Amino acid sequence: MQDWRGIPRPLAAGVEIGVIAGDRGVGTGPLLFGLPKPNDGIVAVAETQLAGATDSLTLHVAHSEMLFSKACARQVAAFLATGRFLHEGDERP
């Protein structure tokens, strides 16, 4: 498998990119494929690192749980409103 992180992709100037990773590795992915920890059951947290990202955050959710997570939705809303995620110690909007 080709490592997509090795492919150069210049980011457009002024574009804010936020990356949310999960660390609740449930399911068969970690067992069948030896996914490195921490992971969300499908993607390793290390795979989500993106040079040039404006902000990043790891939540305690599995991959498919991100779609239904109130915490994830709150973080997406915060990023869209401010260009930053809410980190521990930040005030909630």
Rank of each mutant, 00 (worst) to 15 (best):
A78D: 07
I17L: 15
P36R: 12
G25R: 00
F68Y: 09
G41A: 13
R24Q: 12
V61T: 14
L59Y: 05
R5H: 11
R5P: 06
L80W: 07
G41M: 10
C72H: 04
F79I: 04
A71H: 03
R24T: 03
A51P: 10
A21M: 08
P30V: 01
Q49F: 10
M66N: 07
P10V: 01
E47Q: 14
G29L: 10
D3L: 07
P8T: 04
P30T: 01
A21L: 09
T58S: 13
Q49Y: 10
T28D: 08
K70L: 10
F79V: 05
H87P: 08
P36E: 12
V15C: 13
V61I: 14
P30K: 00
F33G: 01
V61M: 03
G22P: 01
P30L: 01
D55P: 13
G25Y: 00
L11A: 06
F85W: 07
G27R: 04
G34M: 07
S69H: 06
G29S: 11
G6I: 02
A12Q: 14
T28A: 14
A44M: 07
A53T: 10
C72V: 13
A81L: 03
A51I: 04
R9D: 02
A51D: 15
H87F: 09
G18Q: 12
T48H: 05
G14W: 10
K70T: 09
A46G: 12
T54V: 03
G22A: 08
A44N: 06
G27Q: 08
L86G: 06
A62R: 02
L50G: 11
P8H: 05
G83K: 10
A21T: 09
A71Q: 11
L35R: 07
F85G: 04
F85L: 06
F33Q: 08
K70C: 00
F68M: 06
W4G: 02
V19R: 00
T48S: 14
R74D: 14
D40N: 12
